[in-house]
């Protein structure tokens, strides 16, 4: 009985972890501007983007390593909202436990510049917001694990 209850609890947690909330730009914008004592590592990706899929494990590692040290990793999927199940399946396949949202906005020109004015629109792209939102760094590139680790480490000594 005990193990039955435990397994139900476990499945419940798994679902929560693997869930993908579909949001509009204002929700993400609010999150980016939120002032708190956390470093926000926000990665823009999509399931069809090969280099994005290759670097997801690096973000997962950083998430696991720093989640108790005031670093928050948010993976923003730019897949179509109708592809939510595919997104979930690919997260499961890659053992991603970091928080994932799906940004359901097709009119890119309305929000890309608000993430960063230097972003031309290619993915992967990563926005790093410092504690209390005092500074932002934007990278339109792929990261190796050590590059990402060093960057986060330099912000969170």
């Amino acid at each position: 009985m005990k193990s039955f209850v435990l397994s139900i609890l476990f499945i419940g947690l798994m679902t929560l972890e693997g869930d993908v909330e579909v949001v509009k730009w204002p929700t993400l914008e609010q999150y980016i501007h939120q002032k708190n004592d956390k470093i926000k590592v926000i990665n823009f990706w999509a399931t069809w983007c090969k280099p994005c899929m290759e670097e997801l494990p690096h973000f997962e590692k950083v998430h696991k390593h720093y989640k108790d040290q005031n670093v928050e990793v948010l993976l923003v999927s730019l897949d179509q909202a109708s592809m939510k199940d595919k997104v979930k399946a690919s997260l499961k396949k890659n053992d991603i436990t970091a928080k994932v949202i799906l940004l359901d906005e097709v009119d890119f020109n309305q929000w890309i510049n608000q993430v960063d004015s230097t972003w031309s629109g290619s993915i992967p792209a990563t926005l790093i917001v410092s504690k209390h939102n005092t500074s932002k760094q934007f990278y339109e590139k792929t990261f190796t694990h050590s590059q990402l680790e060093q960057l986060v480490h330099s912000l969170n000594p």
Partner: peptide, 10 residues
């Protein structure tokens, strides 16, 4: 000028 998401050139 406009911005749009696209696949990065390899």
């Amino acid at each position: 000028e406009t911005k749009a998401i696209g696949c990065s050139i390899k």
